[in-house]
């Protein structure tokens, strides 16, 4: 937002000078409210249970590292982490590939049923997974996908498709048709155009839908519960949200360890999101702006 004219900075500066402290105060208040509950969880992971029970609002005194060390030293944490990564990466890749292909057709082809196709996907927004969990579960069992990574990944892809397509279609439509004309003149087929021009240009949109799908998968609870936990996968391979609740049940007297496990479980998604945040904003722009 840097102003480029000579007059503007002076004016802007004067404005900021009086309102600036207030703005910072407001901004940091929002930050505090957002972060305090999370910091509470992280910090209390560094406290012994006796310490937490004696003074729930206290600072770690002394700092107690055993909770984190216990969690980091357990097979099940690493197993859950690996499992969460497999499921999230699989879902993300699947959503990106299927999503961009379908969005390409909807955005760049003119055919009867195009609007209908789009409406079918858009209607998916109205179906939360919880609505259909029982029939979905039965279906997955009948397809023999129960208790497997694919049994979680494929339905997650399906439920992430509406969002993905709705974000990607406007993104693809924004790519000028002239590029396609040019490609055609160079002898590229429609498919060639898709591969060589459209795909690279739609990277920002793909990153956005990818990150959203990744986080959705990382945090998902119900489907992994029905498919992995009840599907006979060993406990060490349950995804992290299941691991958190299982851990919280098993060690419910051990608040500190539960908080440490919780802290570590949230870390990867958090880092991933923060790293990609700027790109997400960029990728969403097409979807929310006329």
């Amino acid at each position: 937002m840097a102003a480029t004219t000579t007059a503007a900075p002076a004016v802007a500066k004067r404005r900021i000078n009086w309102s600036s402290p207030l703005i910072y105060a407001v901004a940091y208040l929002v930050v505090v409210v957002s972060v305090v509950p999370v910091l509470y969880v992280w910090l209390n992971g560094f406290r012994s249970n006796a310490d937490i029970n004696a003074n729930p609002a206290g600072w770690p005194n002394p700092w107690y590292f055993q909770n984190y060390l216990t969690v980091l030293g357990s097979d099940r944490f690493w197993g859950s982490l690996a499992s969460s990564i497999i499921v999230a990466v699989g879902t993300t890749l699947g959503v990106a590939v299927l999503g961009i292909m379908a969005a390409f057709v909807i955005a760049k082809y003119d055919f009867r049923g195009r609007q209908g196709l789009y409406a079918v996907f858009a209607a998916g927004l109205m179906f939360p997974l919880t609505v259909a969990s029982l029939p979905l579960n039965l279906l997955i069992r009948n397809l023999g996908l129960h208790g497997s990574f694919l049994g979680v990944i494929i339905p997650q892809i399906a439920f992430a498709l509406p969002t993905t397509i709705i974000i990607l279609v406007p993104f693809l439509r924004a790519i000028p048709d002239e590029l396609e004309e040019a490609a055609a003149i160079d002898g590229a087929s429609r498919i060639g155009f898709f591969w060589r021009i459209l795909l690279p240009l739609s990277m920002p949109g793909l990153i956005t839908v990818g990150v959203l799908a990744f986080i959705g998968s990382w945090n998902a609870y119900l489907l992994p519960l029905l498919i992995m936990a009840a599907g006979g996968m060993p406990q060490n391979l349950w995804t992290l949200p299941l691991g958190v609740t299982q851990f919280a049940t098993q060690y419910s007297q051990d608040t500190g360890a539960v908080l440490a496990y919780t802290s570590l479980a949230m870390l990867p998604a958090l880092l991933f999101f923060i790293a990609a945040e700027k790109r997400i904003v960029g990728g969403l722009t097409g979807a929310v702006k006329g």
Binding site: A122, T163, A287
Partner: peptide, 11 residues
């Protein structure tokens, strides 16, 4: 969690 448009129309 669904950042998407109320799209009954594909444009």
């Amino acid at each position: 969690t669904t950042p998407a448009g109320p799209a009954v129309s594909a444009g």
